[in-house]
Design a binder for these strands. Structure first.
Lengths: 313, 313
DNA sequence: CTCGCGGCATAAGCTGGGGTTATGGGCAGA
DNA sequence: TCTGCCCATAACCCCAGCTTATGCCGCGAG
């Protein structure tokens, strides 16, 4: 209940009810702002994003009104960013970058049929790595249409063997039968804690037994990362809580609930920001290879090879 | 209508003309999608974001049309995400997170006057760290209004000493006179190369002389990171190119132009994705402390103390 | 068996943000 | 002084997205 008067529920909702979209300019406006920053002119930016100068002018102005901050200094000779504008632009860039990754991924998800490069990938890789690769591929070979299918190792193998995919990516301890592979990266599981946790201040690495004896924030049994951890510890991992998404585990760890075990890929940013601290672990192998795979003998060619050369460098 | 000729410019524009906003759903739609994922129901999600059920239904449907992918499986008993939908949702979450950081920052930029906590911070900190802190603070103390002023160390000191700011953050080798400080984090400058670069495969760390002798991608002389590097090398850094923004340096490095020197904060994600590889450096100190500062004797209290406890943990 | 309820879809109508053309005014350099 | 680049304002238009009003479906309770 409690609807029908959803006029504004004054503040019993903790923080931002979810009106995020009303407080953050939309992508078009942010792109425009980046263009203004780069070109130093509203009109020029307008041309670049394909609208007219008055539209750009109005758009920027309404963005300033929305944020309550002057973003650009107009002059008859051009427009430069305010100090605050520069900061806002930097923040905006991160949104736009995330949107570009989204776009690259979504486009691959859509194409399906007539694409020149069909990729099958495991979830972790599809989630964290592929969008970046696709962006890089698009930069090199602008008109390579890519299609993406995400699934577990078995599904990837099946697609490859049935000829429905040109190249696959799996993370796992073993390579499915019938496939050749090349290691393209290493995904380490790492132990992280909030900076407030006692472990953040310890200097010596954690040993395997101590890790096995400590209740941890973990993904649910059966998940890929959990399997690797259990294997490394000999099935001994002791859950403090089990959560069903990487995001939830991250949130719990950041909140200080305890030590968590996560893929390094998932926490790059949190580590850089020191919202999480990595705890070295001694004596057990928490690394798993990320591999490109293809049907035995059918070494990737053409677009697939281009993609691989990006991932390996 | 004004379509003049926006009929579709058949592909002579290299890659993405910039119509990003037309290919990526807007923030409202993405928030709605996250709510659907969390609640398992269109109507429930609608309630959560404060719209009616038909609106949510239509919004999701049009998003599916836009992306060309089915995102949710509807049933008379609720809605669950498709496999593709789960992937899209993960990608969407990153956009929304960036937007939340933007919002937190922008809000602080606006408040100015009547805020209970006035922060002055250097650019690097304001850009990379503060939004995260503000989000955390908002989670803990939902109704603390924060205002932010970004500037160099001198400006931060001035604001503090004139009583216009309650707490400041600076990155630098020295603490401005009249201020007490506490180290809250360490910003390391790191050397990175694209994975394709020869250095990516070397095993031994780089020595100071070799680094000084190699042309590097650098920020322009006078920038904070450049100062630290020059100091560490004794003014010897040899530029391959000088660029005026961290982003440009990153882009050049990712593109393989050569080794770059960057703040660790700026490249967390790129490192995790292996778009850049970190090269260990031997024998020189590229670390600089990030410090919280306040007027001598006026140890932060109230909201300022809350913020500090977040940054130190 | 039949309500009642939660969940989704479709239909019709309204509104406002964002776009367009048209026009005007300032500042610089030829 | 004229010409070019820049920005602002005004008047108009359109569609995306919202709302209210219904209808259909499946399930569990009475």
């Amino acid at each position: 209940m409690g609807r029908t008067d959803d006029h504004d529920h004054p503040g019993h909702r903790s923080a931002s009810p979810g009106a995020l979209a009303h407080r953050v300019p939309d992508l078009g406006a942010l792109e425009l702002l980046l263009a203004v920053a780069r070109l130093g002119s509203l009109g020029g930016a307008a041309r670049e994003v394909g609208i007219t100068q008055p539209a750009a002018s109005s758009r920027i102005r309404s963005m300033e009104r929305q944020l309550g901050v002057a973003l650009v200094d107009r002059s008859p000779r051009g427009s430069r960013l305010t100090d605050a504008g520069a900061l806002v632009t930097d923040w905006a860039r991160r949104i736009v970058e995330a949107a570009e990754a989204f776009d690259a991924g979504a486009q691959a998800l859509r194409d399906r049929r007539d694409s020149r490069l069909r990729v099958a990938a495991s979830m972790t890789i599809a989630e964290y790595l592929l969008p970046g690769w696709l962006l890089a591929l698009r930069a090199d070979r602008p008109d390579t249409a890519v299609s993406l299918l995400a699934g577990n190792s078995a599904a990837v193998a099946e697609r490859l063997l049935s000829g429905e995919a040109d190249v696959g990516f799996v993370e796992g301890l073993t390579v499915p039968a019938g496939l050749d592979s090349a290691v393209i990266a290493h995904d380490r599981l790492i132990v992280v804690v909030a900076p407030s946790h006692a472990w953040a201040r310890r200097r010596r690495p954690i040993g395997a037994e101590e890790l096995a004896g400590t209740p941890l924030i973990l993904r649910e049994k059966g998940s890929g990362t959990r399997q690797v951890l259990d294997a490394a510890l000999g099935g001994l991992a002791r859950p403090l809580i089990e959560l069903s998404s990487t995001t939830a585990v991250k949130a719990a760890a950041v909140g200080g609930a305890g030590p968590a075990v996560l893929s390094e890929l998932a926490v790059g940013e949190e580590l850089a920001m020191r919202r999480l601290v990595r705890i070295p672990v001694d004596g057990i192998a928490l690394a798993r290879d990320l591999r490109a795979v293809w049907p035995t003998g059918h070494r990737p060619t053409g677009p697939a090879r281009d993609l691989l050369s990006l991932t390996r460098g």
